[in-house]
Amino acid sequence: MTQELIDTNVYIGPWPTRRVPGDDSAALTEMLRGHGVTQAWAGSFDSLLHKDIAGVNARLAQACAASGGLLVPFGAINPALPQWEDDVRRCAEEHRMPGIRLHPNYHGYALDDPRFTALLQAAADRKLLVQIAITMEDERMMHPLMQVPHVDVLPLPDLLAVHPGLRVVLLNAFRGVPMPLVQRLAETKQVCFDLAWLEGAAGLEVLKKQIPLERVLFGSYAPLFYFASSWLKLAESPLSETERAALMCNNAAGLLAAP
């Protein structure tokens, strides 16, 4: 039987300060299929700096529709923009997106901002999965005109307690979120983490002693990261077949299937 592989962390479009191989959606789709990816949750790099978020999301939906079902769009919402609530509506009703992807650090708000609280409420009302990208680039490597801190997720556990049905995925979290906070978030059973930014020798072997692997999802951060980085992490640590299947597919599929 062919193993399903769900990549929960890919982006379409060019990174703002660099062209990388596979940064057009057709090439990305071909590359992901070549690696055996059966579904990829996609955001758009345009969403970091563009203010016409509705346009960004429409293009994302179009690109995903052209991928033959491989790319699944996760639209961006910027609650600092006027009428952001309508972007949520369009993501859910017009584009039929299963979730949204947030970049609070690029959009200039903290997670204790009342606008973020309202955004979580809107996502909960529409049963949207919420992805929050914690880090997009090593802070030492950033363009001098685009230095962006990690997202501080310290307020998140208290916010989740208000919305027990809300499901959150933290992308690129392992550089910017201290492990005690990762563990606290994992204990809520409402938060998962993708493994794109997991570092250190045999990282998954170490991580599974710290949080349950049911909280971890396969994510490559392609095309900005070489896809092979996350793929090889599955080989670098000894994993049971059940653990591999959970990381590759079952944990992510469960999030989309959750009521």
């Binding site: 020798a201 980085s229 080989a235 670098e236």
Partner: peptide, 12 residues
């Protein structure tokens, strides 16, 4: 660092 992330720079 992870061997995975570093080997990927060449394999990928």
């Amino acid at each position: 660092r992870s061997y995975a992330s570093q080997l990927a720079k060449v394999y990928g």
